[in-house]
Amino acid sequence: MTEEIIIAGFGGQGVLSMGKILAYSGVMQDQEVTWFPSYGPEMRGGTANVSVIISDERISSPILHEFDTAIILNQQSLDKFEEQVKPGGVLLYDPNGIVHPPTRKDINIYKVEGARLAAEMGNPKTFNMIVMGAYLKVKPIFGMEKVKKGLEKSLPERHHKLIPLNLEAIEVGQKNMETVHTV
Rank of each mutant, 00 (worst) to 15 (best):
K105V: 03
T34D: 05
L64T: 00
I163D: 07
G89D: 01
E178C: 03
P62N: 05
V90A: 03
M18L: 12
P140Q: 13
I98F: 03
G114Y: 06
R58A: 14
G97P: 05
Y135E: 07
P156R: 09
S51T: 15
V85H: 00
V183A: 02
L78A: 03
K125A: 13
K175Y: 00
S17I: 08
E171Q: 15
A48K: 00
A119H: 02
K153P: 01
K111Y: 08
H160I: 09
T179S: 12
Y93E: 12
I63D: 05
Y39N: 05
I170N: 02
M177K: 10
R158C: 04
A118Q: 10
T179P: 01
I6W: 06
E120I: 01
E171V: 07
N128C: 08
I5D: 11
K125I: 15
K146S: 12
Q29W: 03
M121T: 01
D68K: 08
R58H: 10
G133S: 09
K148A: 05
Y93S: 13
L117R: 05
T69L: 12
I98N: 03
P41M: 15
G89Y: 00
S38C: 12
L165E: 09
L92S: 08
Q13G: 09
V147Q: 01
S25M: 06
H159D: 11
L92G: 10
P95N: 07
K111I: 00
V112K: 06
K80Y: 12
Q174I: 10
S25E: 05
E168M: 12
N74Q: 08
M1S: 14
N49H: 14
F81M: 09
L22V: 08
I107H: 01
E82F: 01
P124G: 02
H181Q: 15
K80V: 04
I107V: 14
K86I: 13
I53W: 04
K146A: 15
T103Q: 13
P102W: 04
K105R: 14
G97L: 11
A48S: 15
D106A: 06
F36Y: 14
E83Q: 10
V99M: 13
G45M: 10
F36T: 07
N166L: 10
V50H: 07
I141C: 09
I72C: 10
I98G: 04
V180F: 07
I107K: 02
I107R: 02
I163Q: 00
K146F: 07
M1T: 12
E120F: 02
F142S: 11
I130R: 10
N49D: 14
N176A: 03
L91Y: 13
H100G: 03
K111S: 15
G114S: 15
D106T: 07
H100N: 14
R58S: 08
E120L: 14
V85Y: 07
